[in-house]
């Protein structure tokens, strides 16, 4: 297991390095560079005419005249060594300031959604498989079809309506008014959690519907395995038997798609965020693109891809732990 983990860890680092290089190249694609935009912003409307030499001076000053590879290492070095994502152009402050809070909020929503999805779909899928053909099982199947058919934003609107009626008007956004700009504190976290469940439920909805069916199908297969009958024939109590033998393998397909789930949540988040009045990374990314603020856009892209690569790593490790054949084959 140790060897497998180390191998996957190396794989993850290599992937992240390649991904960061790709992100850097994407940052370089728009015409002009930071110096052009900096000069334009600083001197436009002041009546001072900017010469090419001025821009070049800024460029040298900021080190932008160096070869691309050097600048890449400069950029990624700052991120890895100092957690410094550089300067945000449009906001005249550091990238860290611009994205800081939103990183935490987005990861909060992300993890809440993942945990909610798995916490609901795994036990229910297992239960449905064990009680296959019962009324409960049929009920869950109907729910699954409904869940898959309902668009996220519609669900978000409906939930928002009911949440407003039941929990007061302050349910949109991620904070109640008193905490919106307050510094982090325990009550502020609690306030955030109270708001977090709504986007998490909306984002988890279709995933739950889908994953229940996945777990149910694999669990049904696993239940019919001879090894399960053999374990029953040596007197293993039923509850322990279900967890130890079929359930352990039934969650494999879920674990192996954690990376996909993260990706899906990121891409569904912006529209849900608009409806629920949240500002998260996705929207910021869009705005940064429009402003050609490539340092901000690059930082967000990098964080998103790193998160997906890391979750894939996690899912590999979990999978190998659940099914030792995987690491033996590797």
């Amino acid at each position: 297991m140790l060897r497998f983990t180390v191998e996957r860890l190396i794989g993850m680092v290599v992937t992240m390095a390649l991904v960061s290089l790709m992100v850097f190249i994407i940052m370089e694609i728009p015409p002009g560079d930071y110096a052009d935009r900096y000069a334009f912003r600083k001197y436009s409307g002041t009546g001072i005419s900017v010469t090419a030499a001025d821009v070049q001076a800024i460029r040298v000053d900021l080190g932008l005249d160096r070869p691309m590879l050097i600048r890449y290492f400069d950029w990624i070095g700052g991120i890895v060594l100092r957690g410094d994502f550089g300067q945000a152009f449009a906001f005249e402050t550091s990238v860290n300031k611009v994205i800081g809070d939103k990183v935490w909020l987005t990861s909060g929503i992300l993890f809440a959604t993942l945990i909610l999805t798995y916490l609901i779909s795994i036990p229910i899928g297992i239960y449905a498989a064990v009680r296959r053909g019962s009324a409960v099982d049929y009920g869950l199947t109907v729910f699954s079809y409904l869940g898959l058919a309902l668009p996220n934003f519609l669900l978000a609107l409906v939930m928002l309506y009911f949440a407003n009626r039941w929990f007061g008007s302050d349910i949109g956004g991620l904070f109640s008014a008193p905490y919106r700009d307050a510094p982090w504190s325990l009550p502020r976290v609690w306030d955030m959690l109270k708001h977090l469940w709504l986007p998490a439920v909306v984002l988890a909805w279709s995933a739950v519907a889908y994953q229940i069916q996945t777990v149910r199908a694999t669990m049904s297969d696993e239940l019919n395995k001879l090894s399960v009958t053999a374990a029953r024939a040596r007197g293993v109590p039923e509850g322990r038997l279900l967890l130890k033998y079929p359930a352990r393998l039934a969650i494999n397909p879920i674990v192996s798609t954690i990376g996909f789930d993260v990706n899906r949540i990121f891409s569904e988040l912006p529209i849900v965020a608009v409806v629920l009045g949240l500002t998260e990374l996705g929207q910021l990314l869009l705005r940064a693109y429009l402003d050609l603020d490539m340092n901000v856009a690059g930082a967000i892209l990098l964080i998103l891809t790193f998160a997906i690569v890391f979750m894939n790593f996690l899912s590999d490790i979990l999978l190998a732990w659940l099914d030792p054949r995987i690491k033996l084959g590797a």
Binding site: K225, A230, R232, P237, L249
Partner: peptide, 22 residues
């Protein structure tokens, strides 16, 4: 549960499938 295993043991045709692979 006492009967299964403790009183009666069972062996099946497919030894590979009788064991859990994990």
């Amino acid at each position: 549960r006492a009967l299964r295993g403790g009183e009666m043991g069972m062996i099946f045709q497919e030894p590979m499938a009788s064991f859990s692979p994990v």
